[in-house]
């Protein structure tokens, strides 16, 4: 291949010289992008044993039913994760705990321990459910909100915080709990890896464009996308009739949903 020829990944916009898989997100580059007529784009099905590079470290996705993410950490590099997602690790990989507001997070059933694994060494993660691994390379300045317990790991260059969901209706009926994890890449390219139950689909909403989704299906969104629980009146009656709640997501920005939307307890 011509050294100056680059293949742009349609999933993460990374520029590649390898024609088969994106080096930044692992998406196959030699298969057609699957987009439904309604505009949802299927998350790329990562090929078994796909390798992704971040900083000096590598990430390999193994298996297809319940995929495993194996990280080979370079010296002085690190990743963080919810501790119950860890599958195995080399015995020389040190673990430390990220300082969080533990009691507050425990009260709202979020993991109060986020663990850090530092290189050099190998460590692997998986979530105990059928689904897809979604690799999101975060360009500097990007902010992504993720539903509780969906994040598998993030590289050390990605900063982590959590955003309280505003509005009582959003908290009670929004299906996302009280918090969203927020990942911010400030100065350098970072890596965020999520696990979606079932299949994962993404669409980009234009400014002001909105879509109503089952609240439990929202997987991630750009921080610019707003989330609002909405009551859908189904029938009227003497005691107020019946209704259901959907989450309205309004652009601009990306929205990711999962097709198996039952809220799984983390077992924390």
């Amino acid at each position: 291949m011509d050294a100056y020829q680059r293949i742009v990944c349609k999933w993460c916009n990374g520029q590649n010289t390898n024609p088969t898989a994106c080096a930044f997100c692992g998406a196959p580059l030699d298969v057609q992008n699957l987009v439904s007529q309604s505009g949802w784009r299927e998350a790329p099905r990562l090929r078994d044993m796909t390798q992704i590079h971040f900083d000096q470290s590598t990430c390999q996705v193994e298996g297809e039913i319940v995929p495993v993410v194996e990280i080979s950490l370079a010296p002085n590099e690190w990743v963080y994760f919810e501790h119950h997602c860890m599958l195995w690790k080399g015995d020389n990989v040190p673990l430390t705990v990220m300082n969080l507001q533990g009691p507050k997070r425990s009260f709202f059933r979020m993991p109060h321990i986020v663990t850090i694994a530092s290189g050099p060494g190998r460590i692997a993660f998986s979530r105990d459910a059928t689904g897809e691994i979604v690799v999101l390379p975060l360009q500097p300045g990007m902010e992504v909100d993720v539903r509780e317990h969906a994040f598998l790991l993030a590289s050390g260059r990605v900063s982590y915080t959590y955003e309280r969901i505003k509005g009582l209706a959003n908290i009670l009926f929004g299906g996302n709990g009280m918090w969203l994890d927020r990942f911010i890449s400030q100065q350098a390219l970072g890596l965020l890896v999520l696990h979606g139950y079932g299949n994962v689909f993404e669409r980009t909403l234009a400014a002001g464009e909105s879509i109503q989704v089952e609240p439990g299906s929202m997987l991630y969104k750009d921080a610019s996308v707003t989330l609002q629980a909405e009551q859908i009146k189904l029938s009227s009656g003497l005691f107020g009739g019946t209704s259901m709640y959907l989450a309205r997501l309004t652009g601009p920005g990306r929205v990711g949903i999962q097709s198996m939307y039952h809220h799984h307890e983390s077992g924390e």
Binding site: L34, S36, Q37, S38, W40, R45, N199, S259
Partner: peptide, 24 residues
């Protein structure tokens, strides 16, 4: 097949995904 389209009258449905398919 992923993204298979089925016509039903004037409407249609597309089957998306392979693990937990969506009927769109």
């Amino acid at each position: 097949r992923d993204m298979a389209r089925i016509q039903c009258g004037h409407s249609s449905v597309q089957i998306e995904g392979k693990i937990v398919p969506v009927a769109d």
